[in-house]
Design a protein around this nucleic acid. Structure first.
Lengths: 341, 341
DNA sequence: CTGAAAGCGCTAACAA
DNA sequence: TTGTTAGCGCTTTCAG
């Protein structure tokens, strides 16, 4: 692989001039520049970004860390980040933690060692210590969509999950449902991952004097499959819920499948609502009522925050901006009907 | 950010020794090593991988290039690559081309400029020239799952798509279907992206003397949404197909939704089969008959080929290994019944 | 306008 | 065992 020195030799000049010519910096006579560019092309020259980044102390690359790229929500988020960053001339690399805190630590260390300019960190099995130790290196980190308030160790941006949960509850209540079930990302006896969505939902439901049967809260891991399993559990009992809130769309899709397979209908027998508004809702039958997270707006906010940090500006940590989600009523929810089992 | 020089100063030694101590190379007295490691920790030392990669001429990183990370198939593939590579001590970064050849070219140049050790390239809107110009730099590139035979410019590994398509056709024929439809990734009047799957299917169907009504071939772009639209078209005509082959699972899921919405049932009225066996088939109702691509095996083969190239070994280009897909009959296909519309 | 020189942080011989 | 030296490929002053 030829270097600028090789080009310099070929043209009969020096590396500095080649560098200037190739980057359009400094003053290089038009004729010399032309010759340099031409021979660079002819020799198949490829700049070495490692070297450039080393001197410039800037890699023009950010990393997006997600727990599970196979989850449609994160994948869509990733595409959105890629596109937005690209338009600012920044490259994006995606890495996947598999929800493994150990691995995430290694990954973050690695990204920092590679001197990415900044990191966008989505939650999922990452401990606060891991984030903290990464943040201490001075590499700009923005946490996005964290649902645990301990996230305040770095600048962050999120959405108002509580409001989102509340919107679903209000919708259910307006439709006359009184026996509601939840498919929740989390584990029994632990703080659920989606605890804010749940909290908002629960508060609004409770406020109207309704209790949720503990058996009507089943747990999943945000995957469609887990949602289906959880919904299966929900359909076991004697008194079935007449409306189910799944804390993300993927689980809601699983719940739909489960309900259809049990021979019941949606929303005739049971209403279902999700959260996120991923594009896969396109294949839901019936179309899925959900809470929409405005990805574009979110990504925009997160990246502009990250870029600010990269530019050395301070960003307020204490009160992260919260984007307000919007409720999207569709066909999977309907009024409580007496025929519901 | 401290460097090994800072550590060397603090400990009262030299950079080389610090490097040796930190990397467990060379001979460093136990006591000195301990002191070095300790102060490195205390000073919050982070190695600079840019510098290391620059000297070593090796970044220990490979890149996976996919057209559309939001497509579940690619996302699952990506996770699989990440895990497999990780177990060999190799970092993986994902990048997304958005099926844009121009952008892909930029991306490949960038990865090469960053001196990734190798590139795994999945097809999708990438021109042969782009691949070729990237391959000429000498950066090891393995193409995986290309369905266009012009791909022979680099070593590659794929699956036997033709056999896969044939399996679906045979299944349909055994079930007695004679009016079959296809939801195909591609555009009218162009060679379809999934043309091998289609070819295998078509050959087997034709061999039994059956013709496919041109109106019974509709096009999509591999997304669930497009599958739904295409299926909608298929349901317009007077004579409906009694079985539909969607050339990937996502489109098959879309087709399912479309059929249910039209008030018909699967497989009672219409059978549906997909291709890939992505995990989202878990939410299909009924469970989706499909052709399984053994991701683990495929990724294994692709990576071992890539690693070989990285180690400087030659790899045969002419006859890429073809992994044989397996047919997975499930509940979305059933015998032709007279009641079918 | 052009070139010489220094340096980014680290590693890899080779001497001491 | 330790230190010296010389790069890796590129950018960036700063003289000429």
């Amino acid at each position: 692989v030829p270097t600028i020195y090789d080009i310099a030799n070929a043209v009969g000049t020096t590396a500095a001039t080649v560098s200037n010519a190739l980057n359009g910096k400094g003053k290089v006579s038009a004729s010399k520049r032309a010759r340099i560019i031409e021979t660079a092309r002819k020799m198949g020259y490829r700049p070495n970004l490692l070297a450039r980044s080393l001197t410039q102390q800037r890699s023009h690359t950010i990393a997006l860390v997600v727990p599970h790229i196979a989850n449609a929500f994160y994948a869509e988020f990733a595409e959105s980040v890629e596109i937005t960053a690209q338009s600012s001339g920044i490259r994006t690399v995606f890495v996947n933690t598999n929800e493994d805190d150990q691995f995430c630590k290694i990954l973050l260390d690695d990204l920092i060692a590679r001197r990415v300019d900044g990191i966008l960190l989505l939650p999922g099995g990452i401990s606060v210590e891991t984030v903290q130790s990464a943040a201490m290196t001075g590499t700009p980190i923005v946490c996005c969509l964290w649902e645990e308030e301990e996230n305040v160790v770095t600048p962050s941006v999120g959405i108002d999950f509580i409001a989102g949960g509340r919107l679903v509850a209000q919708h259910f209540l307006e439709l006359g449902h009184r026996r509601v079930g939840v498919v929740l990302d989390g584990k029994p006896d632990e703080k659920p991952h989606h605890h804010l969505r749940f909290q908002g939902f629960l508060e609004a439901i409770s406020a109207s004097g309704i209790c949720i049967d503990p058996a009507h809260v089943q747990f999943g891991d945000s995957s469609a499959e887990s949602g289906k399993k959880a919904a299966n559990m929900l359909l076991q009992g004697a008194e079935l819920p007449t409306a189910i809130f799944a804390t993300n769309d993927l689980m809601a899709l699983g719940a739909l499948a489960s309900i259809w397979e049990s021979g019941r209908s949606v929303p005739g027998d049971i209403s279902v609502a999700g959260f996120d508004d991923i594009s896969l809702t396109a294949i839901a039958h019936p179309s899925l009522t959900t809470v929409r997270i405005d990805q574009a707006q979110l990504v925009e906010a997160a990246l502009s925050m990250l870029f600010q940090l990269i530019d050395g500006k301070q960003v307020e940590i204490a009160h992260p901006p919260l984007i307000v989600p919007t409720f999207i009523p569709r066909a999977s929810t309907g009024p409580y009907s007496i025929t519901s089992l």
